[in-house]
Amino acid sequence: MRRVRVWAAWLAILAMAGCGNRKGSDGPQAGAQGAGGPMEVEVIALTPGEVRDTGEYLGQLISRRTVTLRPQVAGYVQAIRVRPGEQVTQGQILLVVDPRQERAALRAAEAQRSSSVANLEYARRTRERAAQLYREGLMSRQEYEQAVAQASSAEANALAAQAQVQSQQVQLGFYEVSAPFAGVVGDIPVKVGDSVTPETVLTTVDQSRALEVSVQVPVERAVQMRVGRTPVELLDAEGKPIVSAPLFFVAPTLSGVTQLVEAKAAFENHAGLRAGQLVRTRVVYETRQALLLPTYAVSRLGSQSFAYTVVSGDGGMVAQRQPVTLGQLEGNAYELLEGLEAGTQVAVSGVQLLKDGQPVAPKPAAPKGAQQGAGVGGASDAGQ
C-alpha cells in the first residue's frame, strides 16, 4: 500500500508539471487571442486607373502586296531558278520558258533591220545625187521626185524594221518570269519540262514587310469602332501584345456568310509574322479612368463580392466588410463600379482570415510583387 501511494504521488507531480509546460508554451498566443489583439494587415488607398473595354478575336494576316504570276507566253518550262519559300529581290528571275523560237524570230528581225538600214543609206545617197543633177538641169523633175519618194519609203521601212526588233525583244523578255517586287516565293506547282500557257499559275510572291490583319467583329461592337483611332493588338501565346495598329477600314456591310463586320489594321512587320497566318487579336473599343480593386482584395459570399475596408472603431481600427459591384478584369485588378469611393483604405493581405468588425493594425502595402504573394487566397469565400 505504501508503494502504491508513492507512485500515485509521483504521477500527480508529473501531471502538474505537464500542465505547467503547456501553459507556458500556449500562454502568450492564447492570451493575445483571448485579449482580442488586432490583426496586422496591409492596406492600399483606392485610386483611379486606366480601364480598357476590349474584345478578343481570331484574325488573319494578309500581305499588302501579293501577286500571282502567270507566263505571258506559251511554251515549255526550261528552268526554275528559285525554291518555294525563298526570299527574292525585285527583278530576280524566277522561271524561264523555252525562248529558242523567239530568239530565232529576233535574229530574223535584226537581219531585216540591217537590210532596211542599208537600203535607207543607198536611198539617201541617191536622193542627194538626184538633187544635184536636178539643180544642174541634168535630171527631170519627175526623176528627182521619184528619188525623193524612194528615200522616204526606205526611211519608213527602216523604222518599221527597228520597231519589229523592239517588239521581238519585249516578247523575248516575257520568257523570263521575274519578281515584280521583293518578297517570298510561294508554292511552285510546275516543274521543268511542263507545257504552260498564259492561264497557267507558276507561283506567287508575297511581301511580308507590310501586313494587314483582318478581324470579324459582332455588329453591335462595330458601332464602337473608329477608323484611325480604335487600336488592334496582336497577341503572343501568353496574351501579351506584340503589335498595335489603328484600324484603317471598317466594312460598311455585314458578311453574308458570318453576319459579322470585317475590320482591318495595317502595320510594319518586325515580329517575323507571315501572310496567311491566323493570330490572336484584341480590339480596344474604349479606354477610360475608373477605380481599380486588386483581385487579392476581393472575397466572395455566394454570388456577392466583398472588400474589407479599414475604418476607425470604438477601440481602434477595425475591418469592415463592404459589398462591391465589379466590372471587367483589367490585368490583376477589377473595375470597381459601386460600393467604395476613391481614397478608401482597403485591406489587401490576410483577407481570407478577416471577419467583419475585427480589430486590425493597418500598415502600408508592400510593393506590387509582394502584395500578390501576400494576397494568395484572398478571392476565396472568406467570411462565411
Score class of each variant (00 low, 15 high):
D98S: 02
E128T: 14
A105Y: 01
R141L: 03
Q142G: 14
G173L: 05
A147S: 11
E102T: 14
P99V: 02
E102Q: 15
Q169R: 15
R100I: 13
Q142T: 04
L133S: 04
R129L: 02
E110T: 11
D98C: 06
Q162W: 11
S116V: 11
V117H: 08
A154E: 02
R100F: 11
A79P: 06
V148R: 15
N119A: 15
R100T: 14
G173K: 04
V73N: 03
Q101S: 10
L95Q: 01
S140L: 12
S115T: 00
A158C: 12
Q112N: 09
V88L: 03
V96W: 11
N157I: 09
Q101F: 05
G75R: 00
V165E: 00
P99H: 00
E155Y: 06
Y134R: 15
L138T: 02
G173M: 00
L120V: 10
P99E: 07
R113N: 03
Q168D: 09
S114G: 13
R100C: 08
R141F: 04
E136M: 12
N119I: 13
I93E: 12
L133N: 05
L172T: 03
S153V: 02
A123I: 06
G85W: 00
A130C: 04
T89R: 00
F174P: 07
Y76W: 09
E128W: 05
R83F: 13
Q112C: 07
E136N: 03
D98E: 11
L120W: 05
Y175H: 11
A160N: 09
V96C: 05
F174S: 06
A160W: 01
A151C: 07
Q150D: 06
Y134H: 15
Q168K: 13
T126N: 15
P99D: 04
Y144H: 03
V148P: 04
Y122A: 13
I93S: 07
A154D: 01
Y175D: 14
L133K: 01
V170N: 12
R103M: 15
A147T: 08
A130D: 05
Q101T: 14
G75D: 14
E143N: 05
S116P: 03
R100N: 12
R113A: 13
V97D: 03
L94K: 02
E128M: 08
D98P: 00
S153K: 01
A147G: 05
N119Y: 10
E121N: 10
N119G: 12
E136I: 08
V148H: 10
V73Q: 02
Q150C: 02
V77Y: 00
A74N: 06
V82W: 02
Q171N: 13
A111D: 09
A156S: 11
Y134Q: 10
R129D: 12
Q171Y: 12
A160P: 10
I93C: 04
P84Q: 11
Q92Y: 09
